[in-house]
Design a protein around this nucleic acid. Structure first.
Lengths: 160, 160
DNA sequence: TTAAGTGCAAAAGCTTTGCGGGTAG
DNA sequence: CTACCCGCAAAGCTTTTGCACTTAA
């Protein structure tokens, strides 16, 4: 529990310096919301974060949670997870294919790459999860959004 | 345009037999909605499908589009695309990781598998898409949903 | 014939926005 | 001190649901 605690500290530090770099004030709300996402093992939606934070900051409002999550995702200290939830989009392509996903505008582009079709499958027997198929999603920024943002779209964090 | 036309015919055939197998009536609405998704190159949301179908079936209602898309996804003739849109879920995990995604309940489970961390990257220069990172999503059915569905969750289609 | 499907309209959720007061820097 | 940020409440969207009529099988 020490190594992971160190990791957590480091994540908090990164959050702070990133906020400073982007000119975002370090408010208690932002700290708590960031930590709530950091500490959750599942991939919470805004409402789950709201409930988690509420315990420690009873007066907080949903609007703040939405605004802060959006801001934190924009500066890159948290990610929006790719999922199939509520506002669904559909895909009639039956062939094996993969996706480019724009993190700014949610554009999805199909790509075909045979090298990605035979992915090694993790052992999920323990979890009871039955895998049907696998797909690769490359996240990044599409041509239109790069143009709109005027060039400064470099991967400063370089996660993968 | 012949090979792809054949492919389309085959997809339509598969749709029909799948409906019969599941006891879904082959209504004009279902045909048109399926074909609209099949023919779209992007990954349309419900409203885009509604607009597309509307041209050929002016009286159709949004409710029907939602219901049909849901039904078609459930019997597996179309997929719900994974994306980060409106109803977002967040991820504070900064380390490279991948996901198991339950197609029934949208549960997301993190998995670590080093074999998946160094994915070959497709050439996207032509598209102007700047890749930041890649992630693998394995779709399937989680333990809870398998139990709830009473065992009959075998991968009959075997897409990948 | 009959169970399933559809359209309509209303309801229910979730997310965003405007504004006045509060707070970090 | 000043600009940014928050809470509140209302508005805006998207998606779901109940009900009576229509239609596929």
């Amino acid at each position: 529990m020490d190594g992971s605690s160190n990791q957590r500290q480091e994540a908090v530090r990164a959050f702070e310096s990133r906020c400073r770099a982007e000119g975002l004030a370090l408010t208690p709300q932002r700290r708590l919301i960031f930590e709530a996402v950091l500490d959750s093992r599942d991939h919470p939606d805004a409402d789950a974060v709201f409930e988690a934070v509420r315990g420690r900051l009873p007066g907080i409002s949903r609007a703040t949670v939405y605004r802060v999550l959006d801001a934190l995702a924009r500066i890159g200290v948290i990610d929006k997870a790719l999922h199939a939830g509520a506002t669904s989009r559909f895909d009639g392509n039956r062939a094996a294919h993969h996706h480019l996903v724009c993190v700014r505008c949610d554009l999805i582009i199909d790509i075909i790459d045979e090298r990605l079709d035979a992915l090694p499958r993790p052992d999920t027997r323990r979890l009871g999860f039955l895998i049907a198929d696998g797909q690769v999603q490359f996240r990044g920024i599409c041509a239109a959004c790069r143009k709109r943002e005027g060039g400064k779209s470099g991967g400063s964090s370089g996660k993968s």
